[in-house]
Design a protein around this nucleic acid. Sequence first.
RNA 1: GCGGCUGUAGCUCAGCGGAUUAGAGCAUCGGUCUACGGAACCGAGGGUCGGGGGUUCGAAUCCCUCCAGCCGCACCA
Length: 584
Amino acid sequence: MALDKLWKCETREMPATYDLVNSRLATAFGAVLAGADPVLRPSDRCDYQANGVMALSKSVGKSPREVAELVVASLEFGDIGTVEIAGPGFLNISLSPDFLSTQLSSLLNDPRLGVERANPENIIIDYSAPNVAKEMHVGHLRSTVIGDALARMYRFKGHQVIARNHVGDWGTPFGKLIEHLLDMGEDAAIATLSIGDLDTFYREANAKFEADDGFKERSRLRVVALQSGDPETRRLWRILVDQSVAYFSEVYAKLDVLLTPDDVVGESFYNDMLQKVVEDLQTAGLLVESDGALCVFPEGFVNRDGDPLPLIVQKRDEGFGYAATDLAAVRNRVENLQAQEILYVVGAPQAQHLDMVYTVARSAGWLPESVRCEHVAFGNVLGQDHKMFKSREGGTVKLVRLLDEAIERADAQLLERSVGLSDEARRELATSIARAAVKYADLSTERQRDYVFELDRMLAFEGDTGPYLQYAYARIESIFRKLPAPADFEGVVFNLAEPQAWHLGLGLVEFPIAFESAIRDLLPHRLCTYLFDLAQRFTAFYDACPVLSASGSLQVERLALCRLTGDTLKLGLSVLGIDAPQKM
RNA sequence: GCGGCUGUAGCUCAGCGGAUUAGAGCAUCGGUCUACGGAACCGAGGGUCGGGGGUUCGAAUCCCUCCAGCCGCACCA
């Protein structure tokens, strides 16, 4: 099922396994002390373990053993499974086969695989944000990929996501860029920009600006004309913006990211609101003049001398700083877009700036406490020398070049394995694999950490990689192709007799936990970890339990496990923005 | 100087709302299967969880401190 359809699916009728177990336990814990948390976790020595007894015994003043017995006494597990007290007071929980079988059966009929739908909220996700007339480079990779994954996760969850691509389309550099465009001639400039050679254009404009005083003066005047709304200047500026946005769209397409030109709401969009930001801050008594600049000094921020740190809203030269734009954006998002949550997928170095913006926006009354505002920070992409990722020449690396390189290598791998595809089909597959490799590598480590960009590792079919998961999925699909007739799961019973089958079944039922944990803490890597673990459970199962040579109800059961695993991998990858080809 | 992030096996990383023996992948070594497209599978070795202190019956996980690396700290966004 296509993801966009899936997003509209209604909630399945059966509560997720974890929630069921947890709620029964919570009731029993509640009988000892109202509101006590069972602290239910997956366990390596049984199916689930509840660790909450320890904490509870402390607050109740009884021994853990005693409390555990109290909890067990009032626990009504019914057919869910059994509990035993272990060690100092852990509750080891084993699910009953009937229960797990029922849970798995319900997943088989649930396109959402157990993930509950949320009450829809308006979620603004601010991500990617390249600069007009500047190349997209590795620095934009993480924001784009993480933002896209979060957007898909939130949409799947049932929310209304409004993507905002806050592109840098305003400021003094546009004077020289427009003058350079004029020097080149519009057609020639458009030709250069439309092939995506943004860096050359930018560099030439800069070089002239440095070398030629006349050009410098023209550029300065051009900035003034741009800011005062001169129609011809605005038209030329528009060309730069449109050409760049068209180019960004090509990059997004290559990355398979959902952003469209409609999501581009650049800095310039807020120009008309900046004066009002200043006025309203003034009225609110928050604005202070300092060294000629209009600033807000939010509480708790100090500079290196220990003095209050300003958020500069209007510069000494009366131009607006980016803080003004960010404040205007917050207002716009809350007031006009009715945002209930705003996520900024922006590099970690911006942490303090964003923190100041939120603080000021809150004290100005533009950002109610009810609106969650979160900086989804991420670390750097490093080269194999563990330093900032740079090209061999020491410059920044074009994002497209990186992707092309990945595609080339994936293509070479496919050729080597001689998969027997047409050139075109192979190329397409290589693109899919390359995307999966690059995106998964980015998403699978904890956001805040830096990670090492290593194509060979990322593209490997062995290990914790995107291609490995894609391959796992393709292999499952191939099982179904081999079947003489389409599989029919009507009345399937999961006996899960072999330990590997049980382990897999248990893993399948945990998808909602992994998903919820990932979306709640804005950590897509948790979903990656889950999917990789699931794929490993599957290989162990597949190794121990023949499927095609099995017959009767046993084969139906095993096929159903294959189906659920395939569906889970497919869905999990798709909400991360990674597609899973049927064959590879 | 202040603040933030990071420091876990040779390498790349999970785990960090405390809890029963620190996990995975890659690499290394050993074994297994007439290889449902080996993405094999099973097992072994390998870790003072940066150092020290504290809280706790119990700390990789919480607190303090120190060390190392990266980043931010007034008009470029």
